[in-house]
Design a protein around this nucleic acid. Sequence first.
DNA 1: ACCTGAACACCGTTCAAGT
DNA 2: ACCTGAACACCGTTCAAGT
Lengths: 252, 252
Amino acid sequence: MSERVVPPAARRRRRPTKHGVVLSEELIVDTALRLIEEHGADALSVRRLGRALGADPSSLYRYFRHTDDLMLAIADELIGRTLRTWRPTGDWRADLRDLGLRMHAGALAHPRAAVLSSYRVTGREYEIQAVETVLGVLREAGFPDAEAVRIYHAFVDQALAHGALDSASAAMPKAAREAEAAVWRATYARLPADTHPHIAATARHLVADMARSSYPAALELLLGASAGRLAEIRSRSGHPTATPDSSAKAVP
Amino acid sequence: MSERVVPPAARRRRRPTKHGVVLSEELIVDTALRLIEEHGADALSVRRLGRALGADPSSLYRYFRHTDDLMLAIADELIGRTLRTWRPTGDWRADLRDLGLRMHAGALAHPRAAVLSSYRVTGREYEIQAVETVLGVLREAGFPDAEAVRIYHAFVDQALAHGALDSASAAMPKAAREAEAAVWRATYARLPADTHPHIAATARHLVADMARSSYPAALELLLGASAGRLAEIRSRSGHPTATPDSSAKAVP
DNA sequence: ACCTGAACACCGTTCAAGT
DNA sequence: ACCTGAACACCGTTCAAGT
């Protein structure tokens, strides 16, 4: 793992490329996001990105070890953008709902970054900020530490998993996406009741429902279940004898 | 969309390849699954599959229009394998739990097929069978049609989304996977309490919890909420005046 | 110090030619 | 009828050479 990436201190000394562009991590990430926005998720390759920057593709390896590192930097920038315009209201349930829907929308806007970052930890600035923020909302709502982490995990995985699912679907070529919808109408909605009674009975609902994302409903389910837990916790702890870290001891 | 795929009737006339192998859709799918199992998700390419079959890569295009079609055939075969050993018990909640966990496990065993098929509809034999089966479990439990479809959608998306998430993570090279876990221990667990109080307070829980899948918990949440709905529905319909399709009329 | 250009080892897909 | 081989238009990544 030898250092091939430019150490931050040395970056000031950089030289313009052939076409007069001065490269930087920020410029590369922004250009990559623009490329995804304008030409779809598949437009992002080291070679195309180099072309868009007016630089040789190989010059990017001075800023990112692999394409993977670049994608994580993009993912972190997306988290940053999602968080920057978000304001907490003090109502934990409304705050989490808002955050979840923003994360989901952010994923849909940048499908490829969303799919890659959904199962990755970046350990970068904005991701850390997001973790701190969500945990803060839960702990200040009154969830004990272990419970706050469990709900944080479920909440984040749900947003990322559905975000990746829905954005992978949205990133398909238009023709293919229409072909998918047609499968429900042309194949499922036409199965005879004698061989497939349950599909035949519910075909109308299937065609309508499967065209929508199941994320909003899944999010409400999670928030509802969490509210139930919180009510339980509050009613049980009439005596606030528990020290802040007492719940930690219960973990194996 | 000209027919380049061999019509089923003509397949009997096929000729062995150079190395004496007789190609077929089944053989190709099985070989692809073996390749994924033995050499990881990235080992699957048209060229490698051709090599594994002892045939020219281009010959595969007689059986599948694109790599995509091949992946859908693989996905359907996986659905079939998941269903083949499953037996309903009559307890809808236990049945769905079992099915969900099997789908999740199946995804983990074949990450690449899982990631691709998670957002696709195959419209093939086993997928149709699976839809019919899950809808049957829900309708026979007493859920009205519209509700059964909503729960079916949430259940399937959840299994597929978490399956894709967890299997993408599992498919990472071992070194990368270990580096990910290290981020929680080395970065998050060392943030100072004055700048990141919530992370610092819950670091122990984060390290432990984030290493596990959140799917089992998410599944229980869904089953619990569904059971709640069913209880509501049952208590309200003391008078079974509703005709079988009465719920359909309530949909916009 | 930073960027370039050539090279390496791959991809998916098409199509005329072989058997 | 089915498979092959060559070709096309791409990939990510490395490294010696240029400025």
